[in-house]
Amino acid sequence: MARGDAGFVEFARAASARLVHAAFLMTGDHHQAEDAAQTALVRTYASWSRIHDDDAYGYARRTLVNHLVDGWRRPMREYPTAEVPEQRRPDVADDVATRRWLISILRALSPRERAIVVLRYYFDLPEAQVARELSVSVGTVKSTSSRALEKLRSAAPRSADEEARR
């Protein structure tokens, strides 16, 4: 394995879980999320000689988000909300409830809103950077973010009620 390859493998091992999870938050589908993360890493590796000293994680994240956004421009736009996966930790009930709550509120958002929510609140990027990465204005990020949070607030009580009925 070339020296650059070793560096990339180390990077990929460290970044995979977060990229997959971000993709899952944006798609609601584990298989699609793994495919998207893998695509992002393939493209990152293809450009590795140029970027590995730079912000490789940022490059992979941007590639992932753009790849998913490209996918949403195609006809299939639903949020499949995959099954709740098995949990290995002891607090299974809490994890399952949290995941259900998360899925239910993300399902209420449009693809663009989910992308903005994930970039803003999962990756903790500032609004200006979210705007750059999605090639939209800061105003669009602010307004979409605000709209998304409104939806979350309105969706949350219903979700809590649903949980209570389970």
Binding site: D5, Y45, L102, V118
Partner: peptide, 28 residues
């Protein structure tokens, strides 16, 4: 709600997510 959202997004991470890096390298 926002704090709960942040917490939920992080708490549901699956640190054991493994991709096929051999395929990544080959396709790359």
């Amino acid at each position: 709600e926002l704090e709960r959202l942040r917490h939920a997004m992080r708490a549901t991470e699956r640190p054991d997510a493994v991709l096929d890096l051999d395929t990544v390298l080959r396709e790359g």
